[in-house]
């Protein structure tokens, strides 16, 4: 297992380098222009000078090389400097966003708190609700609970956040006036009262996002449990006199987790990708909003950096999922 893990980690380096190249080429090829948001009143020659000032005049390989150098060498140096107070990265060019002319990493770090509060929290909530629903729905297949669960999750999944988000804002902010419709990213939690305010501004986006997660994961959980509940080993376990809870929660659940683990692991990197539509609706301005505004503004260094960091997470969590398969089902052997 250890050698497998090391092999996968080592292999992931060329994979990621390749992915970063493909992303870069894709962004190069994509139509769009950082000048698209500059008003039409600015004449074309000036726009051309602005493009050149952004370094767009240089050939693609050079720009890719520069990005690699900045991201893999300069940025880690900055991190080291920040941790140990050293002075390695002084005067070196960092990855700079075209839109804001500031280091990309600083904006990413600035966006972390709200992303973690809202998107990560909704994911945790969603998973925690989904697992019991899925297990119980399968155990009591076609019961009222199962039917109701199916109905709610499927309707919840069919109704996209661009609609459900607006709907709950209209209900809870406009009609009832209970919750704020705009998320305050500068809010600091220092005491109980400010924590309550934080909860109030989080609850709507978390609800909307958790509904999607719950719908998806509970369906997979239910289906997988159903597959296993009728297996012979379940009858054997029952015949041995094991209690029903042990049979279901230990034997069946463990064997049913493989697809669920896959889905959960696929979802974690998306937390850091942010939730584009929901963030826009509630003005959470996390990483999702950062990514989409950068794409719209064709802020290539920002898009490249953020997508690449997501790619790292995707690759890592897929390794984690593969390792978990081996733990859940020791028969799975990779070497």
């Amino acid at each position: 297992m250890l050698t497998y893990t090391i092999r996968r980690l080592v292999l992931s380096i060329p994979t990621l380098l390749f992915i970063s190249l493909i992303i870069f080429l894709l962004l190069e090829l994509a139509p769009g222009d950082p000048m698209a948001q500059v008003p039409l009143t600015v004449p074309p020659e000036v726009k051309q000078q602005m493009r050149e000032a952004l370094g767009l005049g240089e050939p693609t390989p050079i720009r890719f090389g520069k990005w690699m150098w900045q991201f893999f060498v300069v940025e880690p140096m900055v991190l080291v400097d920040a941790t140990f107070g050293s002075d390695w990265a002084a005067e070196k060019q960092r990855v700079i966003s075209w839109q804001t002319r500031s280091p990309v990493m600083e904006i990413v770090i600035q966006r972390m708190p709200q992303t973690l509060w809202v998107v990560a929290m909704s994911y945790v909530v969603g998973v925690l609700i989904a697992l019991p629903i899925g297990i119980y729905s399968a155990y009591r297949q076609y019961s009222v609970f199962d039917q109701l669960g199916t109905f709610v999750t499927m309707v919840g999944y069919s109704v996209p956040p661009f609609f459900s988000g607006v709907l709950i804002i209209v209900i809870f902010s406009v009609q009832l006036g209970w919750l704020p419709s705009i998320y305050d990213t500068t809010h600091q939690v220092v005491d109980w009262d400010s924590f309550v305010i934080q909860l109030k501004q989080m609850v709507m986006p978390v609800m909307v996002l958790a509904l999607q997660t719950t719908a998806q994961i509970s369906r997979f959980m239910r289906a997988s449990m159903l597959d296993n509940l009728n297996q012979d080993y379940v009858w054997t376990a029952r015949a041995k006199g094991l209690s029903e809870s042990v049979v279901v929660m230990i034997h069946v659940l463990r064997n049913s987790m493989i697809p669920v683990i896959t889905v959960i692991a696929l979802g974690v990197p998306q937390i850091f990708g942010g939730a584009i539509i929901t963030e826009q609706i509630f003005k959470v301005n996390g990483l999702g909003q950062l990514l989409i505004t950068s794409i719209q503004a064709n802020d290539l260094p920002m898009v490249q950096t953020v997508t690449f960091m997501l790619a790292v997470l995707i690759v890592m969590f897929n390794i984690v999922a593969d390792l978990l398969y081996g733990i859940l089902d020791p028969r799975i052997r990779y070497d």
Binding site: T15, F18, I19, I22, I23, L26, L27, L29, A30, P31, G32, L266, P269, L291, I292, I295, V303, T307, F308, L310, A311, I314, V315, N318
Partner: peptide, 22 residues
């Protein structure tokens, strides 16, 4: 095949779609 999957998971959707239209 799984590295291919990783690659597709990593590609930013919007630019990919715009390239396809183009």
């Amino acid at each position: 095949l799984m590295r291919l999957t990783d690659l597709f998971l990593s590609l930013p959707l919007l630019p990919l779609l715009l390239v396809m239209v183009m």
